[in-house]
C-alpha cells in the first residue's frame, strides 16, 4: 500500500483532469467541422481556418493585440525591473510599496477598468491604443515584478561584491553580473506580462475605440452574436499558442536544471 496516497484522491484527480480538458477538446474538435450549424458533424475541413486567415477584422484585431501586448510587456517589465532593483534591500515602507505595486492582482478588473474609463474621459483622453497601453502597463506591472523580484531574492549577494572586488565598477557589475543572473527572471516576467496583456479582455473592452479592437474583444462580441465555427477556429489557435508558450517555458526550465 502506498502510504502517501489517500483513498479516492486518484479517482477524483482523473475526474478533474477530464473536467479540465474535455470542453477544450470538444471546442477543438468542432473547429474542424465543415458544417456551419455546428450541431452535426459532417466532415473534417480546414475551411474555418482559411476563413479567419482572410478575415480583415480578425487580422486587424490580432495585430492590435500583438502591438498592445508587446508595448505593455516591454513597458511593465522595464518599470518592474527598476522597481525590483530598488526594493532589493529592506527599508521602511517596503510593505506599502509592494502592496501598491501588487494591487492590480487583487482588485477586481471590472472595477479598475470602469474607473480608468472615467479617468480618461475626465481628462479627455480618446479611447483606443493610447488609452489601452498605459492601462495595460499598470496592471501588468505585478506580473513582471514578482518573478524578477523572486530571482533577485534568490541571488547570492556575494556575487556582486565579488565583481566589484575584481575591479568591475557599478555599471560593469550590473551589466556583466547582475543583469545576466537576473535574465531568467526578466524573461519570465516579460512572458507573464505579455501573455496577461494578450489575454486581457475587460480593460480592452472598456478602453478600446473604433479600429483598436483586440482579439479577445472581437471574440467576445462574436460569442455574443452566437456560436460559430469561426470562433472555434480562433479559439483553437489561441489555445495552441498558449499551450506552446507554457510547454516551451516548462521544457526550458527542465533543461536549465
Amino acid at each position: 500500500m502506498n502510504l502517501r496516497r489517500l483513498p479516492f484522491t486518484r479517482e477524483i484527480s482523473l475526474g478533474v483532469l477530464v473536467y479540465l480538458y474535455v470542453p477544450v477538446m470538444v471546442l477543438i474538435f468542432y473547429s474542424f467541422n465543415a458544417n456551419r450549424t455546428a450541431t452535426v458533424w459532417s466532415e473534417a475541413s480546414l475551411d474555418w481556418y482559411r476563413k479567419i486567415l482572410v478575415n480583415p477584422s480578425i487580422r486587424d484585431a490580432t495585430w492590435n493585440s500583438l502591438v498592445l501586448a508587446t508595448a505593455a510587456g516591454l513597458g511593465s517589465t522595464l518599470l518592474a525591473l527598476a522597481a525590483a532593483l530598488g526594493t532589493k534591500n529592506r527599508f521602511r515602507g517596503l510593505a506599502v510599496v509592494e502592496a501598491i505595486l501588487n494591487a492590480p492582482l487583487i482588485l477586481p478588473e471590472v472595477v479598475v477598468a470602469v474607473a480608468t474609463l472615467m479617468l480618461f474621459v475626465a481628462i479627455g483622453i480618446d479611447m483606443g491604443l493610447t488609452a489601452m497601453i498605459p492601462a495595460h502597463i499598470a496592471f501588468c506591472i505585478p506580473f513582471a515584478y514578482l518573478p524578477i523580484r523572486a530571482r533577485l531574492e534568490g541571488m547570492n549577494p556575494s556575487l556582486e561584491e565579488a565583481a566589484q572586488d575584481l575591479y568591475a565598477n557599478r555599471f560593469v557589475t550590473f551589466r556583466r553580473v547582475t543583469l545576466p543572473l537576473m535574465w531568467p527572471g526578466i524573461m519570465a516576467g516579460f512572458t507573464l506580462a505579455f501573455v496577461t496583456s494578450l489575454d486581457d479582455f475587460l480593460t480592452s473592452f472598456f478602453l478600446s475605440g473604433p479600429g483598436s479592437t483586440t482579439l479577445p474583444v472581437y471574440i467576445f462580441s462574436a460569442i455574443r452574436a452566437g456560436i460559430t465555427p469561426e470562433i472555434n477556429a480562433i479559439s483553437t489557435i489561441m489555445l495552441i499558442v498558449s499551450v506552446a508558450l507554457v510547454v516551451t517555458s516548462f521544457l526550458l526550465g527542465k533543461i536549465r536544471r
Binding site: V24, V26, V195, D199, F201, P216, I219, I223, M238, L245
Partner: peptide, 11 residues
C-alpha cells in the same frame, strides 16, 4: 494559461 473567454466559450 488559456484565455478566459475561450474557456467559458468551451462550456
Amino acid at each position: 494559461w488559456t484565455n478566459l473567454l475561450v474557456r467559458n466559450y468551451a462550456w
